[in-house]
């Protein structure tokens, strides 16, 4: 029975750095995504009528539309950010369905790193669109007394992003593992289908929420 909740086994040592299973899984997912993206780019350039090119165009267009609905205008950088987040998390979650693979997002360290990226992107996007003073000013609005609440809300939503993704993916994987140990063949299949759905939904939620946070920072000075 391969149940793992908080641990992360070390596969081998690379000099002083221990290489854990999660690092290998996420690196493999990243390499696959990069290879597919580079191949798609050359395919779209050389053969735009091919159905794969149309599919790639549809994916990019849907992220652009999503960002336009949330932020209020087309924003290529935010769309890239949201799309990368969605694809990486979704592929990590789907990779967890392969036998023997533990999903990289089922580890609190990975999800904390992703949430930290969102946490750092929010002030960067806000300062880029409103200037340093315009962004800092929104912390003191509507009243300077509310400044601690703004800071607490930024910290707590980062924590919630990390723990939500981790909890969902880890609990889904744990449930499938328990069912395999208890009942074995074919019984866990519906739960695995549910796990797949939840994985895609959580990837969508993560990218939507990060877009909402970044969009709020971008429009912080416009009122």
């Amino acid at each position: 029975m391969n149940l793992r909740i908080f641990g992360d086994p070390i596969l081998f040592q690379l000099g002083p750095i221990p290489i854990t299973e999660t690092m290998v899984t996420s690196a493999v997912v990243t390499v696959i995504l990069l290879a597919v993206a580079i191949l798609m780019r050359s395919l779209v350039r050389s053969w735009p009528q091919h159905w794969l090119s149309v599919l790639a165009f549809l994916v990019v267009e849907s992220f652009d539309n999503l960002v336009e609905e949330i932020v209020g205008r087309r924003h290529a950088l935010v769309a890239t950010f949201a799309g990368s987040m969605f694809l990486f998390i979704a592929f990590c979650n789907i990779a967890g369905q392969l036998p023997g693979v533990h999903p990289a997002t089922g580890n609190l360290a990975t999800t904390s790193a992703l949430a930290a990226v969102v946490f750092l992107s929010v002030p960067i996007a806000g300062i880029q669109s409103n200037g340093l003073w315009g962004y800092i000013k929104h912390y003191f609005r509507p009243n300077p007394l509310l400044m601690p609440l703004h800071v607490i809300s930024e910290l707590s939503r980062t924590l919630a992003l990390a723990v939500r993704l981790f909890g969902n993916i880890m609990s889904g994987h744990l449930l499938v593992g328990l069912l395999v140990a208890l009942a074995g063949f074919l019984v866990p299949t519906p739960i695995m289908a549910l796990d797949l759905l939840i994985g895609l939904l959580q990837a969508y939620i993560f990218s939507i929420l990060s877009t909402v946070y970044i969009g709020a920072a971008i429009s912080a000075g416009e009122e």
């Binding site: 919630a160 723990v163 981790f166 909890g167 969902n168 609990s171 744990l174 939904l201 969508y204």
Partner: peptide, 26 residues
């Protein structure tokens, strides 16, 4: 879209409880 986002936000409280329970157990 709003439905899914709010469902996930509410669901995350239950997930937090699950994580706390797993910390207590394991």
């Amino acid at each position: 879209r709003t439905l899914f986002v709010s469902l996930a936000m509410v669901e995350s409280t239950a997930i937090f409880c699950l994580v706390i329970a797993l910390i207590l157990l394991f």
